[in-house]
């Protein structure tokens, strides 16, 4: 029921072969560099670079498209507010409504940043299995407690999706109509039931884990050490990130 962070068949690509810590640092630096882009001349290069990285990842296009469809209430609001209310220079007018240059550029800026960041994030998580990602983050300093919660939660979500689905089917077979006022109460009951069951199950899960050595000293060694190619790719990302951050100051 739930789409995994990685699509069904993760195709081998240069992105999947890139050592995880280098990939994490490199792509995240690019992501934050993109977040800082304000100069409209950098928008097109930013979008093109994102598409190039996506192309290298061999991920299916619909995986990215499904994630771009979630712009949220804020973006949609900005799509209306910015072009129509922000700025002085009027591009076109129709009665009381005027399309403004500054606002339109501001919105295009937001849209381009959103697209590029989402694309890179999709590539990062689409080419890295969660346990590998968590191990890399732990070796880069993520607290153990957070890493454990992240991994457990991720694994449990899929089973819970099944449980939630079946509970809703069973409720619907007994006449519940999700979408009616009464269904708020049914939803609350289902959430409550899942909380109670999960809580009791957690004690058994902990006992089973303790029996298999959870909590004892574990090695954090990351499976693969980075090779020259990994480091070179990282250096390239850092250089590109620097270009995006510094070029407005340099070209003026």
């Amino acid at each position: 029921m739930i789409a995994r962070a990685n699509p069904e068949a993760v195709r081998e690509s240069s992105l999947t072969r890139w050592e995880t810590r280098a990939k994490l640092i490199g792509l995240l630096c690019l992501v934050f560099a993109f977040a800082s882009v304000r100069d409209t001349r950098l928008l097109a290069p930013m979008v093109l670079l994102s598409l190039a990285v996506f192309g290298l990842s061999a991920l299916p296009a619909r995986h990215l498209l499904s994630r771009l469809k979630v712009p949220g209430v804020f973006l949609v609001a900005l799509a209306v507010v910015l072009p129509l209310f922000s700025g002085e220079t009027v591009l076109a007018e129709a009665g009381p409504v005027a399309l403004r240059l500054e606002g339109t550029l501001a919105f295009l800026s937001v849209a381009a940043r959103f697209f590029s960041i989402v694309t890179l994030a999709t590539v990062l998580f689409g080419t890295t299995p969660m346990p590998t990602l968590v191990r890399a983050m732990r070796s880069l300093g993520l607290p153990a407690l957070l890493g454990d919660i992240l991994l457990f939660t991720y694994r449990y979500i899929f089973q819970l999706a099944e449980d939630l689905h079946r509970a809703r089917v069973a409720a619907r077979l007994r006449g519940a109509r999700f979408g009616s006022i009464r269904s708020v109460s049914t939803t609350a009951h289902i959430i409550g039931s899942l909380l109670v069951r999960s809580n009791w199950q957690a004690e058994r899960v902990l006992a089973a884990m303790l029996l298999r050595g959870y909590g004892s000293a574990r090695s954090l060694e990351v499976r693969r050490a980075p090779v020259a190619r990994d480091v070179a790719a990282l250096a390239l990302c850092l250089a590109l990130a620097a270009v995006f951050v510094l070029s407005p100051a340099l070209i003026g």
Binding site: A167, G175, G192, S193
Partner: peptide, 30 residues
């Protein structure tokens, strides 16, 4: 409501705080 199915995993079906309310759930929805 004339078709009634009892699931294999009863956990999926029992969602109310008391037995009385859970049994009442179906009839109330009719």
């Amino acid at each position: 409501p004339e078709i009634g199915m009892v699931f294999h995993h009863t956990n999926d079906q029992l969602i109310c705080p008391t037995v009385r309310e859970d049994i009442a759930f179906g009839p109330q929805n009719t």
